[in-house]
Each structure stands twice: as C-alpha cells, then as structure tokens.
Design a protein around this nucleic acid. Structure first.
Length: 445
RNA sequence: CGGAGUGUAGCUCAGCCUGGUAGAGCACCACGUUCGGGACGUGGGGGUCGUAGGUUCGAAUCCUGCCACUCCGACCA
C-alpha cells in the first residue's frame, strides 16, 4: 500500500477524551473514530488489525473442530421469551420494535438463537459432538462505556456454542475450547492466564476467564509463573474425537489448571503461598479477553433442544458457550505492547509487515530505490506500507513509530550516496545500515 | 443509575466572570525557501459558538429547559 493512496488520518495531538494508552494510540494512529458513546467506526488501519486478529481466532476455532456460521445481529424477542431471559436480561439489552410493532432486540449474545438453529435440525446423538461459532457484532448497552473499544457498547465477539450428549462430552468440548484459547492468545503475542470465574447471567457451574497480562490492565491478578512458560502453539495436543485425544486434552488442561491464578476479588493469599513456590509467584494486572462456560441443560431444556440417545429416547443436550472479545483484543494487545512513541505490533497482527520510508520523495535516485524495494517487498508477501508522501523525514519517522509496524526500511539520498539503507526493528529500536539488497534479503528471510 | 464536569474550526484550546456581531497553535489549500527525527515565510479556505426558548437595542458571553459527550462509583467479551 502506498501511503499517498491510503486513508490513515494520524493525529499529532491526543483527543481529550482518551484516558488509557490503547485508546489514545488508536485515536492518534487513525485506527478508530468515535461515533457515539461506546460506538466506534473502524478506520482502515484499525480494520486491518481487527481482521488479522479475527483470522487467527477463526483458524484456531477451525483447528479445534468448531464450525463457522453467521447469525444476524437482530433477534426476535419471542426467542428470548422461550429461555426466560427476555425479562431477566435487563437494560443492557437494546430493545426496539419494527414497523409491525414486533418486539426485536440487538443481540448481546446468541445462546437462544443457536439453540433454535440446533433443535431445528439435529435429532440424533450420532450428529454430536457439535460446536458452532460465529464472529459477529454484539451490542450491550453498558451503564458506562469507557476506554475506547476496551469497553464499547458495540463490539465484535467470537462466540462458539457446543452441543454434547452428556456432561462428559460437554467437558471435553470445554477443554477443546480451553486449549484453542491458549493457542489463540499465544499466537496474538499475549500472555493469557485462565482464572476460575463466576458464570453471571449466562449461567452454569464451570467457567474460566482468560486474562491477558498487561501493566495497564483493569484488574490486579495473582498467578503462578508456570502460566508464562507453557507453549500451547507448539504443544502436541490433539483435537481428534478419539479416546486418546480426549485423554490427552484432559491431561493437558488438568495439568495446566493445577497452578494458582486468581483475580484480586477471588485472591486467597494463604492458598497462593501454599500452592506457588516463592520464585514463581507473580503479581500483575490483566484484561479479560475471553470467557468460557459449561451450563449443561440451562437452554436446551426450556427450549426443547434434545437428541435421541443410543437407547432411542430423547434427552436435552449439554451445552457450553465460549466468547472472545475480538475488538477488545485490539486494545489489549496495545496495552500489552507499546512504548512512548506508539504501538509495537506483534508480527502476527501488524497492519502492515514493514514500513518503507522515502526520505526524499521526488529525488530520482531515492524514488527509484524505493520503487525497487516496494516491488520486492510486495512480491515476497511482506505487505509493505510505502510512505511516498513529501512529508518531512521527522514526521515520517514519528508516524511509522506510532503505527508500530515491526520493521522500518528507511531510504534516503545520504545513505544511498554511501550505498546503504537503514533497517530498524520497531520493538528493539535497533538500527542497521546495510545495502538495499541485503536489507531486502533480511526482511524476506 | 447516583455524583462531578465539559460542549467555540478536523485536533488542542483561548474568549464567557465584566454582553457590542469570533480568535490562536496544529491540520488543510497556493506560491516560495527548505528537507536524515514532527521546518519557515507570505497569502488563503474553513465555525448554525451543542440545541430550543427567554432577558436585552444587541447574546459565544446572562437565565431556563433539553441533548450529547467525558470522568468517579456499583456491572461486563
């Protein structure tokens, strides 16, 4: 992408409303624009990151055996009356009427709808286990939206729903999602710690929150350092529906959960000292980015979602639901990875792979070198952002640091006179001078 | 929902107290000089002063209602 043809309205000054660093940086980098309290437009740069995160979430859901579909944002009140939640949910749910005075709502979650879809078609235990998910916008009319997309009213959520014949199956479905979540957060460059959680309005008796460790997080957390070390992306955990697969998942999750982790509200100092050796005790701050629930027959029973078991009799399915705040993750990643100059994106979600700065646009030799570099970077799939504007070098450097792409390739006449360009690593800040050829070779390696 | 506060140009803000018909910096446009860490000069464009009403010869400024947004508390991906 050429910056001259892109839409990236960066701001030199910080809009007054932004309190936390991710909100400030997202506004300054031109990633989002507020349209209403807790409601944001995603500008091209922010949209790119959102899509990259969604893609990783999708890949890991697919890997774990979940199947993607897409449900509407607008739902009928009748559906929610079946589960009893239409009256139970409260003013967080946005309700309205269509022209025929039918009561509608903007979905805050989709348990009812997915249960309706399931019961219409699935009649036999032979079709289980089943896990259906979508990535869709939600609306919850928060009492107090704040911190930009960290707690917006409209937000993008991945929500998955599992269906099993019995509790044993449902617990395995729960573990699959648990592992998928750990893999997902690791691929996003985040350290996430699972913590036992209340089930809240979704209900059920088994639930974990996934808390991303970030110094500016909202809640204090206490945890065992074992959670920093596990390698889930490389772990040999199978998602096969075999006895060996199930046993492996049970072992892996059980192993992992034997360590101590608690949010401040649920922290037990005595247990912490008993269960975690001093060298592994960690105290930090965190942001909730995922929440998983097993709630059995809470919806299947009132909504009559049942299947025939091996004995031919019908029984309500056991369900669980699994959410990841995709739009919140954009802010969480920034909270976890930034410096004074701007965002430092993990490579996996960076809006561009490399920034290419032309320090003297209009200079024939510099332009030619940049065009060569740009073509090469595009060709090897690095998705470069080429700053081909006539802005001053200082402004270009500041903007590149702000948007935080992993590498910067800096090309100017002074360097070219000596046969070199500059290659800067955004995270370490290290700069190297080398020939254009070797810089390109290094980037594409 | 309780408490506090703010609405003036795309952004940051001054002007309001003490009414006299709207300003600065940044951003934007033109020209020139510049150009390796957010340049400078000259000229220019852009504002229903949140909104409705009231007071007044005259309201951004004083009064009232409404709306929007922000912050602090109790809840959440």
């Amino acid at each position: 992408m050429r910056l001259s043809r892109f839409f990236m309205p960066v701001l030199k000054e910080t809009p007054a409303e932004a309190e936390i660093v991710s909100h400030r940086l997202m506004l300054r980098a031109g990633m989002i624009r507020q349209q209403s309290a807790g409601i944001y437009a995603w500008l091209p740069l922010g949209h790119r990151v959102l899509q990259k995160i969604a893609a990783i979430v999708r890949e890991e859901q697919d890997r774990a055996g979940a199947i993607e579909l897409l449900m509407p944002t607008i739902q009928s009140a009748d559906l929610w009356r079946e589960s009893g939640r239409y009256d139970a949910y409260g003013p967080e749910m946005l309700r309205f009427e269509d022209r025929h005075e039918r009561e509608m709502l903007y979905g805050p979650t989709n348990e009812e709808m997915i249960t309706e879809i399931f019961r219409a078609s699935v009649k036999s235990y032979r079709d289980l286990p089943l896990n259906l998910y979508h990535i869709q916008w939600k609306f919850r009319d928060e009492r107090r939206p704040r911190f930009g997309v960290m707690r917006g009213r409209e937000f993008l959520m991945k929500d998955a729903y599992s269906f099993d014949l019995d509790e044993t199956g449902a617990r395995d479905a729960y573990r699959k999602m648990f592992i998928a979540y750990m893999r997902t957060f690791q691929r996003l460059g985040l350290r996430a710690v699972p913590m036992r959680a209340d089930t809240g309005p979704i209900g059920g008796d088994l639930s974990h929150e996934f808390i991303v460790l970030a110094p500016t997080g909202e809640s204090a957390v206490f945890y065992d350092a074992a959670y920093e070390e596990a390698d889930w992306a490389g772990a040999d955990v199978s998602f096969e529906n075999t006895e060996a697969g199930r046993a492996g998942r049970e072992r892996a999750v059980g192993d992992f959960l034997r360590h101590y982790a608690a949010t401040e509200e649920m922290h037990d100092a005595a247990r912490f000292e008993a269960e975690a050796p001093p060298a592994r005790r960690r105290q930090g701050r965190g942001i909730e980015v995922g929440h998983i629930f097993y709630f059995g027959e809470k919806y299947s029973r009132p909504m009559r979602a049942s299947v025939a078991g091996p004995d031919g009799t019908d029984r309500p399915v056991h369900m669980g639901s699994y959410g990841i705040g995709v739009s919140r993750l954009v802010a969480a990643i920034i909270e976890a990875s930034h410096d004074e100059a701007g965002v430092i994106w993990p490579r996996s979600v960076a809006p561009f792979g490399v920034g290419l700065a032309n320090l003297k646009q209009g200079d024939a030799q510099t332009d030619a070198a940049c065009e060569t570099a740009y073509a090469a970077l595009v060709k090897c799939g690095l998705d470069p952002l080429y700053d081909d504007t006539d802005a001053r070098p200082g402004a270009k450097f500041a903007a590149m640091d702000l948007i935080g792409v992993p590498h910067q390739l800096i090309v100017g006449p002074k360097g070219l006179a000596r046969g070199v360009v500059e290659l800067k690593d955004r995270r370490s800040g290290e700069k190297a001078e080398l020939s254009l050829e070797s810089a390109l070779a290094k980037l594409s390696a």
